[in-house]
C-alpha cells in the first residue's frame, strides 16, 4: 500500500508540474514577485545587497512554494479534479503529499535559479551541504504551510490573499530585510515562533554572512514544522470532503 502511495505522490507531482507550472498565479506570485523584490533591493542599494541575499533567498522559497500550492490545490478544488484523485485507490495523505511535492519542486527550481545567479554574480562563498540541508526542509515547510491555508478556501485568488498574511508577516519579522537581532524583545520572541527565521539564519550561515548560530538547530526546528503543517492540512482536507 505504501508503495502505491509513494508512486502516486510522484505521479501527482509530475502531473502538476506539466499542468500548472505556467499558470498565471504561479508565475506572478511565485516568480515575478520575488524577482521584482530582489531587483528593487539591488537597485536601491547595490553595495549592501550581499547582506540581503540570504533573506531574499528565503523569501523566494516562501513565495514560490506557497504560490504553487494555491494553484495545484485551489484550481483542482474549483474544477473538481481533486475529487478525481481522491477516488483513486490511494490515501488522502498521499494526494496531499503529491500536491506538496509539486510546490517543493517549483520552489526548488526558483530558489536554485536565484541562489546560483546570486552566487555567480556576487561571488559569494557557499557551503553547499549546509545550504542543501537548510533548503530542502524549508521547501517542505512552506509548501506544507501553503497547503494548510489553501485547503481552507476554494478559489485561487482567495488562497493567494490568505497566504499574503503569513507571507508579509514573516518577511518583516523573520530577518528578511531587517535583522532579528535588532528587533525589540517581543518581536524577537515572535520571530522565533515563525519558521522563516530559521530558514534565513540557516541560509545566512551557509553563505557565510554570519558565523554564529546553530545550523543543526535550524534544520531540526524546520523539520519539526513540517508535520505541524501537514497533519492539520490533511485533517482539513478530509473535513472538506466529509
Amino acid at each position: 500500500m505504501w508503495k502505491d502511495n509513494l508512486r502516486s505522490i510522484y505521479y501527482i507531482a509530475l502531473k502538476d508540474m506539466r499542468t500548472y507550472y505556467l499558470k498565471a498565479p504561479a508565475i506572478s506570485w511565485g516568480i515575478v514577485f520575488p524577482v521584482a523584490w530582489i531587483l528593487a533591493f539591488y537597485l536601491r542599494s547595490p553595495q549592501d545587497f550581499k547582506e540581503l541575499v540570504p533573506g531574499l533567498i528565503a523569501m523566494t522559497i516562501l513565495f514560490s512554494t506557497t504560490a504553487m500550492e494555491a494553484v495545484v490545490i485551489n484550481l483542482e478544488l474549483r474544477l473538481g479534479s481533486l475529487e478525481r484523485l481522491l477516488l483513486a485507490p490511494i490515501s488522502l495523505s498521499a494526494v496531499l503529499l503529491g500536491k506538496i511535492v509539486g510546490g517543493v519542486i517549483f520552489g526548488f527550481m526558483m530558489t536554485a535559479a536565484i541562489t546560483v545567479s546570486s552566487v555567480l554574480v556576487l561571488g559569494l562563498q557557499v557551503n553547499i551541504l549546509h545550504l542543501v540541508l537548510i533548503l530542502i526542509p524549508s521547501l517542505f515547510v512552506f509548501s506544507s504551510l501553503g497547503a494548510l491555508l489553501c485547503v481552507l478556501v476554494k478559489e485561487v485568488f482567495e488562497a493567494q490573499t490568505l497566504l499574503n498574511l503569513p507571507r508579509f508577516l514573516m518577511i518583516f519579522l523573520c530577518g528578511v530585510v531587517y535583522p532579528v537581532s535588532a528587533m525589540p524583545p517581543v518581536l524577537k520572541h515572535l520571530a522565533y515562533v515563525l519558521p522563516l527565521t530559521y530558514t534565513v539564519e540557516g541560509v545566512q550561515q551557509s553563505l557565510g554572512s554570519v558565523h554564529s548560530g546553530n545550523i543543526i538547530r535550524d534544520i531540526l526546528v524546520l523539520l519539526a514544522f513540517i508535520p505541524i503543517f501537514i497533519f492539520p492540512a490533511a485533517k482539513l482536507l478530509a473535513k472538506k470532503f466529509a
Binding site: D4, R7, S8, Y11, I12, K15, R18, T19, Y20, L79, G80, S81, E83, R84, L85, L87, A88, P89, I90
Partner: peptide, 25 residues
C-alpha cells in the same frame, strides 16, 4: 464517473488516460 467531466484541461486525451492508469497501478 462523476457528474462533472473533471479531467485535466491542460493534458491531452491520451495523457489524461495515462495519468489515471498510473494512479490505478
Amino acid at each position: 464517473v462523476p457528474e462533472v467531466s473533471n479531467l485535466y484541461d491542460e493534458l491531452t486525451a491520451l495523457e489524461n488516460l495515462v495519468f489515471m492508469a498510473q494512479l490505478y497501478r
